[in-house]
Computed example of a mutant assay.
Amino acid sequence: MSDTRPPAITETDGWLQLGAGRLFFRGWAPEAAAGAPIILFHDSLGCVELWRSFPATLAAVTGRRVLAYDRLGFGRSDAHPGRLGRGFIRAEAEEVVPRLCAAAGIGRFVACGHSVGGGMAAETAARWPERCEKLVTIAAQAFVEDRTLDGLRVAERDFEDPANLARVARYHGDKARWVVDAWIRTWLNPDFAPWTLDEALARLRCPVLAVHGDTDEYGSLEHPRRIAAGRGRAHIFAGIGHVPHRECERELAGVIDGFLREG
């Protein structure tokens, strides 16, 4: 009888020193990992811990090493020294990714991001075309949409309840207020309204998979269609909202695995 047990996954933690502070990262790897590692970029309230079991599942299903990290100001990383600049999505790709790869011993990679992390993954693929083999976006935004802003306004009201902020603090500690404000105030700022991923998308040279749920409260299906148009394909999960990696974890890992196995 064949052994159907899932492969053992080894977790390894590390730290990266930047000029503004230290970043925390964690890797998951099956014993016989093969192929380019997958770098995960978290969402606006996210961190390594909030990926929960998805990185280990993704590593087991794909047979690849998976790396996730806490951006500056999030999770176990140091506090951010100020406010997010208008170009923070592109800056992550240009300034942090090459240092992260050097610290983690990564050459070529697959960029995979959730929500605003999907934008960072796209900017990373556009900035480092010689190193990024494929791009996966999960519930990513490609432009500032009324549906996104409406969802943020609901979240803003929800965070008037101290209990909701306390839940964020479980993962971000005393950085929680900054995390929430960085998300809401950045996206609701009229100066951010013209932002799009269009320039980065035009520079992509790798295959693209844009995953989205059809009940996503922070973005319509126009986002995955725009991201994938002429570059790859969109995969739409029926009855799934903004967090596919928690709502349909194994199905999402399977879709990503199938994409990575394509020629």
Rank of each mutant, 00 (worst) to 15 (best):
L67C: 10
A229E: 15
L18E: 15
W15L: 13
P224N: 13
C101A: 14
P81T: 09
V243D: 05
R127F: 04
L45S: 10
Y171S: 14
G219Y: 01
I106N: 11
I240L: 02
A229W: 02
V154Y: 03
S2V: 07
L260K: 03
A121D: 06
L23K: 06
G87S: 11
Q17F: 00
R231G: 10
G75N: 10
A193I: 04
V48S: 12
A200D: 13
D78M: 05
H235R: 05
W128G: 08
R205Q: 14
Y218G: 07
R108T: 15
K175L: 02
G258E: 04
G219R: 04
W178M: 12
A182S: 15
F54N: 06
A139G: 15
A210T: 04
D78Y: 03
G117A: 02
L209V: 02
F88Q: 13
R231F: 03
R185G: 12
I38Y: 08
L16R: 11
S44E: 08
C101Y: 03
K175T: 06
Q17I: 00
E11M: 03
V48A: 10
R205S: 13
E94T: 08
Q17H: 07
V208F: 01
L16F: 04
V180P: 05
A91W: 01
A34F: 00
T148W: 09
G219I: 01
P30M: 13
A182K: 09
I9N: 12
F192M: 14
E217Q: 15
D146I: 02
R205P: 01
R231C: 11
T57I: 05
A121N: 10
G254N: 06
F237A: 08
E11C: 09
A59N: 07
P37T: 07
R153S: 12
E217Y: 09
R83N: 14
H245E: 02
A125D: 11
I240N: 04
A36H: 12
D198V: 10
A121L: 03
L209C: 03
T4V: 07
G213Q: 06
T137A: 08
P81Y: 03
R185D: 15
P7I: 00
W51H: 06
H80Y: 12
G14C: 09
W195P: 14
E145Y: 00
F24E: 07
